[in-house]
Design a protein around this nucleic acid. Structure first.
Length: 480
RNA sequence: GGCGACGUAGCCAAGUGGUAAGGCAGAGGACUGCAAAUCCUUUAUCCCCGGUUCGAAUCCGGGCGUCGCCUCCA
């Protein structure tokens, strides 16, 4: 049970096993979080959901995990947004951070253990930048900005597989005056009028984007990171630059492996706020159950692109109903057969099927977090449970075990199957009275009365399923 | 132009050498007063052309096509 999980590493392209849980100590997981200048969209959340599933899977396999995700609360976009609104960047940051946390919770994403804000680590960044300057890895320009000498770091380009001479730099961006080389990037941006600024040995200014993650990851989690992740659009230049800075500071590897989530596509093109082809998640949340969105994310492997569409979401929505109905049906049946001892053969057969499912599920997740395969296992398990419910010799304990496993495993994938609404004994008694009244009506072939009672039950949120052994009732699964 | 990913049923999508998971949609059947659900069965020349192999969706070569990164970006 302590075989390691393997993850594909962007740097080498190889599937690299993590140390087995017993030997791994605490797994340090860092991934790039949002810039809080506006609401996040569904593409952003795909990445966050990916790392959420990774954390849950690691925990399931016995790893201790420390997860950290940055909140970028100072950058060009923050400044622009604040200027548009005529308020301080900190106000924009606070507002959108709160909205982000709300979205994150609604999506069932467990908050990372640490969520450092960039503005709270500026002194540490300045320290790191100063060290880089001392070592000659970076230099101050006349205007007070500080740049990193990209070409001086021998591994530059390795993470993204870039051939430095082929990089088209400055083709479409006006070259920044003061750089020695077009590939160099800013560690510290000199103050411009109207912008927030912090003191530094090079004059007032603010940190560049890349240094923020490097500094915070090292301070908050410590080096080396076991896993450093983010969306695959961050591979170059962001992660390439992070890696260069970090290893110029300390030549030991910054991250033992890099994991990148595939992008979400809208109409075949990357979902992107700047392209304007995607709205905020909170709008989508009004139309779709967050768990349907999670289920949609699970249809593709995390590293592959995933195309959003109404059709795909409708499919996910229908699938979610199925997922939940397995549980509500099993619970209803459990209530009906409470305490029943089944046939040993039937119970053992169910146990064995559940055990096989667990095995297949774990194998799938250990294989580069293959959630679609794990997801398929759970649909099969759902079918197994439905079959078991139709089995007259089934014992209640075996069914309870199967249901418990089903709910737990969906939980590992971040899908909340949902519990019964608060058990209201009175309501249950009323339902049961109506159900038996309807049964009696059916016995005397009084279909009108039977249908009337069914309608009454439906109005109470109860679904009747007539089976060979009589009527079974369950609470209506919420349609989403 | 450089680097990378991908092309599997009507749609979404797993599957890295041994004759194709799963979801959605469709069809047939069982069950059934009706209904709903469920269960069973069923729907694929794996983009094209070569090659390696006893055997390839899977490996190699060549096409064609799509997407990402190279610029802020999950």
């Amino acid at each position: 049970m302590d075989r390691p999980i393997a993850l594909r590493d962007t740097l080498t392209g190889e599937r690299v096993p993590l140390d087995p849980p017993a030997a791994a100590g605490t797994v340090r997981l860092y991934y790039c979080g949002p810039t809080v200048y506006g609401d996040l969209h569904i593409g952003n959340f795909r990445t966050l959901a990916t790392f959420d599933v990774l954390r849950r899977a690691l925990a399931r396999f016995g790893y201790r995990v420390q997860a950290a995700m940055n909140i970028t609360d100072i950058d060009d976009k923050m400044i622009r947004r604040a200027a548009e609104e005529g308020v301080a960047t900190s106000e924009v940051a606070r507002r959108y951070e709160a909205r982000f946390l709300e979205d994150q919770a609604a999506m069932g994403i467990a908050p990372p253990d640490r969520m450092p804000r960039a503005t709270e680590y500026i002194e540490a960044m300045v320290e790191d930048i100063a060290h880089l300057v001392e070592r000659g890895a970076a230099y101050a320009a006349p205007d007070g900005s500080v740049y990193f000498r990209a070409r001086a770091y021998p591994g530059y380009g390795a993470l993204s597989g870039q051939n430095l001479d082929a990089i088209r730099v400055g083709a479409r961006v006006e070259p920044e005056a003061g750089k020695e080389d077009d590939l160099d990037f800013a560690l510290w941006k000199a103050h411009r009028p109207g912008e927030p600024a912090w003191p530094s040995p090079w004059g007032p200014g603010r940190p560049g984007w890349h240094i923020e993650c490097t500094t915070m990851a090292a301070r908050v989690l410590g080096r080396p990171l076991d896993i450093h992740g983010g969306g695959s659009d961050l591979v170059f230049p962001h992660h390439e630059n992070e890696r260069a800075q970090a290893e110029a500071l300390d030549p030991d590897p910054f991250a033992r492996r890099w994991v990148h989530a595939g992008l979400l596509l809208m109409d075949g093109v990357k979902a992107s706020k700047s392209l304007g082809n995607v709205g905020p998640l909170r709008e989508l949340r009004r139309r779709y159950d967050p768990m349907a969105v999670r289920l949609f994310f699970l249809t593709a492997h995390y590293a592959h692109p995933l195309s959003w569409s109404e059709e795909a979401m409708d499919a996910a929505r229908a699938a979610l109903v199925r997922v939940r109905e397995v549980a509500t049906r099993a619970r209803a049946h459990l209530r009906a057969i409470a305490g029943r001892a089944g046939s040993e053969a039937v119970d053992l057969a169910l146990d064995a099927q559940v055990r096989r499912a667990v095995q297949a599920f774990d194998d799938a997740l250990r294989d580069d977090l293959n959630a679609p395969a794990a997801n398929a296992v759970l649909f099969d398990l759902g079918r197994t449970i439905n079959q078991a419910v139709g089995e007259p010799e089934l014992g209640s304990e075996a069914l309870a075990r199967a249901l418990g496993t089903y709910v737990d495993l969906w939980g590992v994938l971040g899908v909340d199957v949902g519990g019964e609404t608060a058990v209201d004994e009175d309501r249950v008694r009323r339902v049961e009275a109506l159900v038996s009244a309807r049964q009696a009506a059916r016995m005397r072939r009084d279909w009108a009365e039977a249908d009337r009672l069914r309608a009454e039950l439906e109005a109470m949120g109860v679904v009747i399923e007539d089976t060979r052994e009589g009527a079974r009732w369950r609470w209506q699964t919420e349609r989403v």
